[in-house]
Simulated scan of single mutants.
Amino acid sequence: MTLLLNHTDTVKALDKTAETALIRLVYVSSLTLHSRLKASIFDEVEAHACDYNEQQGITGTLCYGNSHFLQCLEGEKAKVLALQQRIFADNRHKNIKILLLETIDQRIFSDWRMRLLFLERWLWSPATKQQAMQLSPFLPFAPHGWSSQRTEQFLQVIKDFQTPPHIKAAGITYNAMGN
């Protein structure tokens, strides 16, 4: 696959694909310093993604760790590309790079509208450590250098997660900032 750096490249790569075809788009980005200082960013992103993606029939996952996002979007080409354009214009993150773009016959995340996974070991609860240990080969989380094959391996590991790997202690859930 040719390296795709922006929305225009993605549109060109899918030029001969039907608008209603199912596609999978996986990109990575880095959280800006300003966004890292905003404790509510993850709640805002998750709430917005769940609502919007449900309306548009888009499924996938959003992973965060080590100041990096990795998001997998699955859905009809036209709807995923419209969302990609909005995401790539969002100034809460930078260094955006597409890792995987492909047409698909079926979704990996068909039962998830959008799920947020924190990939910081210190956030893992005892109940989810066994499940989360499968992530060890992908940690520390630095997806900007991943190949398409490594990205697909990662998606296969997380697709079966039943419980998000994060800490809930004394009724408090800690986010990736420790808040």
Rank of each mutant, 00 (worst) to 15 (best):
Q71A: 02
A89T: 08
K129M: 13
T2D: 11
V157S: 03
V45N: 04
N66P: 04
L135D: 03
F141I: 01
D160S: 14
M177W: 08
E120T: 06
D15V: 02
E19A: 12
R24T: 01
A49R: 07
L22T: 01
R86C: 05
L25V: 11
Q153W: 06
I23Q: 00
V28G: 03
I23S: 01
T163H: 15
F154L: 12
A170M: 11
L123K: 10
H34I: 11
K168H: 09
N175Y: 00
T2W: 10
R36W: 08
A170C: 04
R86F: 04
D9A: 13
L62V: 10
E44L: 14
Y174F: 11
H7F: 09
M1F: 06
S147R: 14
R115Y: 02
A89H: 12
T8Y: 07
R113L: 00
M133V: 05
K159H: 04
Q85G: 05
P126N: 06
H93T: 03
T173R: 15
R24M: 01
A78L: 10
S67W: 06
A78P: 02
G178N: 08
D90S: 08
F118L: 13
T173A: 10
I172H: 12
E152C: 11
A132P: 05
T32H: 04
F118W: 15
M114R: 09
F42H: 13
G178C: 05
S148T: 08
T61D: 04
T128K: 11
L4E: 04
L155P: 01
W112T: 10
S35H: 07
E74S: 12
G65R: 14
K16Y: 01
R36P: 00
D90G: 07
H68P: 01
V45C: 09
L62M: 15
V26I: 03
N95E: 08
Y52T: 11
